[in-house]
Design a protein around this nucleic acid. Structure first.
Ligand SMILES: NC(=O)c1ccc[n+]([C@@H]2O[C@H](COP(=O)([O-])OP(=O)(O)OC[C@H]3O[C@@H](n4cnc5c(N)ncnc54)[C@H](O)[C@@H]3O)[C@@H](O)[C@H]2O)c1
Ligand SMILES: NC(=O)c1ccc[n+]([C@@H]2O[C@H](COP(=O)([O-])OP(=O)(O)OC[C@H]3O[C@@H](n4cnc5c(N)ncnc54)[C@H](O)[C@@H]3O)[C@@H](O)[C@H]2O)c1
Lengths: 210, 210
DNA sequence: ATAATATCGATAACAAAGTATCGATATGTC
DNA sequence: GACATATCGATACTTTGTTATCGATATTAT
């Protein structure tokens, strides 16, 4: 079987949230059409997405079992075996992420945070902030695979290199730089400027039409 | 001319940052190959992207004028005429965004923030937090087009509806819900779970190969 | 001047993602 | 029990995005 496409993969968490809602409301089955309507998608797209992760598939006339889908998507996305992560850069954004409860739903657990100015800042969640020099040892000791970068752009590449040298295999980068990484490292640049570009382009189109 | 593709559009801010760096270092021209190498892209992809926004195009052997590209991409992305925005939900994430200096580079200016608990919280930037009930009037008065949502998922749809009723035309949603909006509203759901799904999928693949 | 070369833009080939169509099949209705 | 219908999965088609190819053209070196 081919790997799932990036687009399908990104739709799965959205489906899952919706399915959890249905589940909570006691709804036991759902059709691809219903899901598609909710998210302005084509039903065929939804069926193809679900075909990747669903063992039994859907039944004619009734659709898919909500409970099954919830279990299968959760499993597929790795929400059942939580991954540890470290975060570097406990500033405004880093603190917000550290204090965010939502990540546990997504199988992510931030086990330690690091900054260069540990003496000054206090994390709102009262978790300890370690000096960045402690990172390599801790990462190696705990076998942490994921690193989150929330430092200023100028420091991001250096932090990235340090993470990789310490054994980190996946990097989630919130600083506005496209990090340079070897091919055996997973990297996701969370580029707000790119998002904003898409949004304001659409806004311009809408304003022009009115 | 056809509209630019979403993918191209999202690459432009990345190019721009790089070009600004080159510009700062006094480099006057750059080839599509050089840009492509920097971001692990195909040179043809880069040339096509630049063809959309560049008036004169590049010159054989030398490439593109850095200064021209910087000016043209900035203009194309609307960085020269700043758009006003309002933010609702001055919690952990909302405060971080409010205090973020970077948005001014992207032509975004947050002119006011709102919450339902204005008396309790103090924004780190000392800007005033308005009660959510003030939103419609202010948005209408200032003609604000963009709304940023950083409230809990449960409240997000209600805030979204309020924004739309007040005249907001573009919504940047950071809560983990896919908001339901009419077609004449631009919406960007900033779904961290989707990003994380992509990252951890790649991580899994990498770990499997080792 | 002439030749060598890096680069461009245009066009064409390819790949991937999305959409339409259609026969098969559960489920509920007459 | 026959019939209508909602839905599925498979296949085919369309659209969109990426990559390869190639002739044309500045620039540099001989
Ligand atoms: N604040 C936001 O809402 C926001 C939004 C989008 C992107 N970003 C990006 O996220 C990053 C962080 O933004 P912020 O607003 O939280 O900035 P911030 O200045 O509040 O925090 C940055 C933190 O990183 C620490 N730091 C700097 N260099 C370091 C190093 N080499 N090692 C360890 N720690 C180091 C600083 O001490 C500081 O605590 C920036 O790159 C920013 O562009 C922020
Ligand atoms: N904190 C993070 O790093 C993070 C990361 C990803 C996504 N998010 C999402 O962003 C949103 C905000 O997260 P947070 O951590 O800042 O939460 P938070 O609880 O710190 O802040 C939420 C704020 O919204 C306000 N609010 C609630 N209902 C409101 C309403 N109807 N009108 C106006 N204001 C209202 C609350 O008073 C509070 O100040 C959530 O949806 C969260 O899932 C947060």
């Amino acid at each position: 079987m081919e790997g799932i496409s990036k687009e399908s993969l990104q739709r799965l968490p959205t489906y899952l949230r919706y399915l959890n809602e249905l589940h909570l409301n006691g709804i036991e089955s759902v059709s691809s059409t219903t899901i598609a309507d909710r998210f302005k998608l084509n039903p065929v797209t939804v069926r193809k997405d679900l075909a990747f992760i669903s063992e039994d598939g859907g039944k004619p006339k009734t659709g898919f079992s909500v409970a099954d889908l919830v279990a299968e998507i959760s499993e597929f996305l790795g929400y059942n075996n939580t991954q540890d992560a470290v975060l570097v850069g406990v500033g405004k954004l880093g603190s917000a992420l550290l204090g965010y409860k939502g990540f546990s739903n997504y199988g992510l657990n931030i086990v330690a945070s690091f900054d260069c100015k540990t003496d000054i800042q206090i994390d709102s969640t009262k978790r300890e902030i370690n000096n960045i020099s402690m990172l390599p040892d801790l990462v190696k000791r705990l076998g942490v695979n994921i690193g989150i970068i929330t430092v200023p752009a100028e420091s991001a590449q250096a932090v990235c290199d340090l993470m990789i040298n310490s054994g980190i295999k996946a990097i989630w980068n919130f600083s506005p730089t496209h990090l340079i990484t070897p091919d055996n490292i997973a990297i996701k640049n969370e580029d707000m400027a790119a998002s904003l570009a898409v949004l304001s382009q659409r806004l311009t189109a809408i304003l022009k039409n009115e």
